[in-house]
Design a protein around this nucleic acid. Structure first.
Lengths: 116, 116
DNA sequence: AAATCATACTATAATAAACGTAGTACTATG
DNA sequence: CATAGTACTACGTTTATTATAGTATGATTT
């Protein structure tokens, strides 16, 4: 038997299990959007725009679209006078409450909104 | 008494309390970096690079610099042979464990690493 | 009827963030 | 002397986010 020199395929590194979540959460404005939607049953586009204070409407639009595609946000057309659109969290979206809670806790403890 | 027409200064909207945290966490790679650093006492630049699989070294460099400035990551020069650099979490960084835990939980429940 | 307002966006051009690729500077090892 | 490991930086390109303006619809005011 001859041992031939060959390159061992190196064992795959363990993947980062939070990567898919980080892909969603680690985008600008996502956490804030979820934060506000957790706080009220539904919000309008302009309302979110105001609350986020300074987000670009194009960015907000694409972020909401992405969150809808991911199953986190629900978009509802309301046929009232005047007709408008309401955004709310799905069950999947509401389940981010634990994450938001942890972030809020951390933020209050370490970033200290009181003494900036 | 005459009622003069005047514009009420509208009450300031309540700020988003997680904004400072979102500013840090909501950047690409931050969550993954913290995830891996929580898992081992310290890591090297190249090690992180490998684990993150595909991050640009410039981006990783600036992200680590930012995390160091924020007080989350500690950079230590090791004068051994060969000399190198080790990155580890500060107490503030380690306190992100709750956040990572919540994200991991959510990721496992809803993004289902098993059936992508 | 015309102008104005509210709502929910889209369009455009500019800047900032992240990217791929390559290269640098150091030490050690073959 | 060439190659390898470590920790980056440099360069030019693509993608994301931004500021600002504009569109489309329907209702309300003049």
């Amino acid at each position: 038997m001859s041992m031939s020199l060959q390159i061992e395929p190196r064992p795959a590194l363990p993947l980062c299990p939070i990567e898919p979540a980080a892909h969603i959460i680690g985008q600008k404005w996502t956490l804030q959007i979820v934060y506000f939607l957790l706080d009220s049953p539904s919000m309008r586009f302009c309302e979110l725009q105001d609350r986020l204070g300074g987000v670009n409407p194009s960015t907000l639009s694409s972020r909401l679209k992405m969150l809808e595609e991911e199953g986190i946000v629900r978009r509802t057309q309301i046929s009232a006078i005047p007709p408008h659109v309401e955004y709310s969290l799905t069950e999947m979206g509401r389940s981010l409450e634990e994450v938001i809670r942890a972030v809020t806790q951390w933020s209050n403890t370490w970033l200290c909104g009181c003494c900036s």
